[in-house]
Lab assay of single mutants.
Amino acid sequence: GTVHVGDKTYHFPTPDAAKKFAQEIAKKLNLQVTVKNGTWQVH
């Protein structure tokens, strides 16, 4: 899975790992999470 946070991109071996990371970052930074075609965006 891929997660975009601002101008950074993180790659994870599984979709679940990407989802978990995106949700944790969003919670920590009080941001929104959207997913499109398996790519997570934190914004």
Rank of each mutant, 00 (worst) to 15 (best):
Val35Asn: 14
Phe12Thr: 01
Phe21Met: 03
Val35Trp: 15
Asp7Gly: 13
Asp7Ser: 13
Leu31Arg: 06
Glu24Lys: 10
Lys36Pro: 01
Ala17Trp: 05
His11Phe: 13
Val42Asn: 02
Gly1Ile: 07
Leu31Met: 15
Val3Lys: 00
Gly1Asp: 07
Lys28Trp: 06
Asn30Asp: 08
Thr39Tyr: 10
Ala26Glu: 03
Lys36Phe: 13
Ile25Asn: 02
Leu31Phe: 07
Lys19Val: 06
Tyr10Ala: 01
His11Tyr: 14
Lys27Val: 10
Ile25Thr: 08
Ala17Gly: 08
Ala26Ser: 07
Ala17Phe: 05
Asn37Gly: 10
Ala26Leu: 02
Phe12Cys: 04
Val5Thr: 03
Lys36Leu: 14
Lys20Ala: 14
Val35Arg: 07
Ile25Ala: 05
Gly38Lys: 04
Asp7Leu: 12
Phe21Ile: 02
Lys8Cys: 12
Phe21Glu: 01
Val42Ala: 03
Tyr10Pro: 00
Ala17Pro: 01
His11Met: 08
Thr39Asn: 11
Gln32Tyr: 07
Asn37Asp: 15
His4Phe: 12
Thr39Glu: 15
Leu29Met: 09
Asp16Leu: 10
Phe12Asp: 00
Lys36Gln: 14
Thr14His: 07
His43Tyr: 13
Val42His: 02
Lys8Gln: 11
Gln32Asp: 08
Val33Cys: 06
Val42Gln: 02
Gly38Ile: 03
Gly38Pro: 03
His4Gly: 04
Lys36Ile: 15
Gly6Trp: 12
Ile25Glu: 05
Gln41Glu: 15
Glu24Tyr: 15
Pro15Leu: 13
Val5Gln: 02
Val35Glu: 15
Glu24His: 13
Ile25Val: 11
Leu31Pro: 01
Phe21Pro: 00
Phe12Tyr: 03
Gln41Met: 14
His4Tyr: 11
Phe21Gly: 01
Asp7Ile: 09
Ile25Trp: 06
Leu29Tyr: 15
Thr34Trp: 06
Gln32Cys: 09
Asn37Phe: 05
Phe21Lys: 02
His43Thr: 12
Leu31Ala: 15
Asn30Phe: 05
Thr14Arg: 04
His43Ser: 12
Pro13Ile: 07
Ala22Val: 05
Thr14Phe: 05
Glu24Asn: 09
Gln23Ser: 08
Thr9Asp: 05
Asp7Asn: 14
Thr14Gly: 05
Ala18Cys: 02
Phe12Met: 03
Val42Leu: 08
Ile25Cys: 07
Tyr10Lys: 01
Gly38Trp: 05
Ala22Cys: 03
Thr2Trp: 11
Ala17Glu: 14
Glu24Ile: 08
Phe12His: 01
Leu31Gly: 14
Thr34Asn: 05
Lys8Ile: 11
Leu29Thr: 05
Ile25Met: 10
Val5Trp: 15
Lys28Asn: 07
Pro15Asp: 13
Pro15Arg: 14
Ala26Arg: 02
Gly1Lys: 10
Gly38Ser: 07
Val42Glu: 03
Ala22Trp: 01
Gly38Arg: 05
Asn37Val: 03
Asp16Ala: 13
Val35Gly: 15
Gln23Trp: 14
Asp16Met: 10
Phe21Tyr: 07
Thr39Asp: 12
Pro13Met: 09
Lys8Pro: 00
Pro15Asn: 13
Val3Gly: 01
Gln23Ile: 15
Gly38Glu: 07
Val5Tyr: 11
Thr34Pro: 01
Asp16Trp: 07
Gln23Gly: 06
Lys19Ile: 07
Val3Met: 02
Gly6Asn: 08
Thr34Ser: 12
Tyr10Asp: 00
Gln32Thr: 14
Asn37Gln: 07
Glu24Cys: 05
Gly1Glu: 06
Thr2Glu: 08
Thr14Asp: 10
Val33Thr: 06
Gly6Leu: 14
Lys8Phe: 10
His43Ile: 13
Lys36Asn: 14
Ala17Ile: 08
Thr14Gln: 05
Thr14Lys: 04
His11Gly: 04
Lys19Gln: 14
Gln23Asp: 11
Gln23Met: 15
Gln41Tyr: 15
Thr34His: 06
Lys20Ser: 11
Lys8Val: 11
Pro13Tyr: 07
Gln41Pro: 03
Asn37His: 06
Val42Phe: 04
Ala26Met: 03
Ile25Tyr: 07
Lys20Asn: 12
Lys28Ser: 09
Asn30Met: 06
Thr2Ala: 08
Trp40Met: 05
Thr34Gly: 04
Gly38Asn: 14
Asp7Val: 09
Ala17Asn: 04
Val35Thr: 07
Val33Met: 07
Trp40Ala: 03
Ala22His: 00
Val5Ser: 03
Asp7Glu: 12
Lys8Ser: 07
Lys8Met: 10
Phe12Pro: 00
Asp16Thr: 09
Lys19Phe: 12
Thr34Phe: 08
Thr39His: 15
Leu29Val: 03
Pro13Thr: 12
Pro15Gly: 10
Pro15Thr: 12
Leu29Ala: 05
Leu29Asn: 07
Ala22Leu: 02
Asn37Cys: 04
Ala26Pro: 00
Val5Met: 09
Val3Cys: 02
Lys20Met: 11
Asn30His: 10
Thr14Tyr: 05
Phe12Ile: 01
His4Lys: 14
Gln32Glu: 11
Val42Gly: 03
Val42Cys: 02
Lys8Trp: 09
Ala18Glu: 00
Gly6Ala: 07
Lys8Asp: 07
Pro15Ala: 14
His43Leu: 12
Phe21Arg: 01
Thr39Val: 15
Val5Asp: 03
Thr39Trp: 06
Thr34Tyr: 09
Trp40Gly: 02
Gln41Asn: 12
Pro13Phe: 07
Lys19Asn: 09
Lys27Ser: 11
Pro13Gln: 11
Pro13Asn: 12
Lys19Arg: 13
Gly1Met: 10
Ala18Phe: 02
Lys36Asp: 13
Asn37Ala: 05
Lys27Met: 11
Gln41Leu: 15
Lys28Arg: 13
His43Cys: 06
Thr14Val: 04
Val35Ser: 09
Asp7Trp: 10
Ile25Ser: 04
Pro15Trp: 15
Asp16Val: 08
Tyr10Val: 03
Thr39Gln: 14
Lys19Gly: 10
Thr9Phe: 11
Lys20Ile: 12
Lys28Ile: 10
Ala17His: 08
Thr2Ile: 13
Lys8Tyr: 10
Glu24Phe: 14
Ala18Ser: 03
Gly1Tyr: 15
Gln23Thr: 13
Thr14Trp: 04
